[in-house]
Amino acid sequence: MDATAAALIGMGLAALGFAGSGVGLGVLFGKAIEAIARQPAAEAQLAKYIWIGMAFVEAVALYGLVVAFIIMGKA
């Protein structure tokens, strides 16, 4: 296997990081909806933390993307 092919496989594997982010988003919004269903009055307060949390979780996937791009540079 030549280096380019290995790099391409590596890029694909780096994209696997999105799975973690997907799980995170699912947990985040699932719990958020649960919390709002239990306590609808707290929605405005929770929304702030939901968006902050979403940005954090999403960033994790993007770290994977950055890794993929870095590998792309080496290919």
Binding site: F69, I70, M72, G73, K74, A75
Partner: peptide, 9 residues
């Protein structure tokens, strides 16, 4: 210039 990210130049 390389096929990597332009940000790493």
């Amino acid at each position: 210039a390389g096929s990597g990210m332009p940000q790493f130049e």
